[in-house]
Design a binder for these strands. Sequence first.
DNA 1: AAAGTGACTATCA
DNA 2: ATGATAGCCACTT
Length: 112
Amino acid sequence: MAKDHTNFFNNVYEVVRLIPHGRVTSYGAIGHYLGSKGSARVVGWAMNASHIMDDVPAHRVVNRAGVLTGKHHFDTVNPMQERLEAEGVIVVNDKIQNLKEVYWDPTEELAL
DNA sequence: AAAGTGACTATCA
DNA sequence: ATGATAGCCACTT
C-alpha cells in the first residue's frame, strides 16, 4: 500500500484491528479519531471494503446506538452477534445491550 | 469532472 | 417515544 489514496481505509482497518477483545466502537468514533468526525459513512464504506481483509473484525464496529446495522453485509453465515456474544458482548435483536460496558473509544484509548 | 451511493449521525416534527 | 429529513465525507461509475 504505497499509495496514499487508500490511506484513509488503511487507518480505519488499523483502528478496527486495534479494538480490544470483547470491545466495540462506533463509526463516528473511528472517523473522529481519524480527524474527520463527520465521516462516519466513510468508515462504514471502508468496512464494506474490509471484506477483502480478514484481519478487520468489522463485527466489532457498530453504529452509535449499538445496533449491528451492517450484520447483513457479512459475506459469511457467521452472524455478528454470535461473534460478539463469544467475546462477552450481550447482543439481543442485533442490538448491544451492554454497549456502555463494552464501548471502546479510540479517541480516548489511543489518542493519548 | 460531475453525479450518485452508502455498514452514519444529528436535528426537526 | 418514533419517523422523516438534512448534512456529512470518501469512493464508484
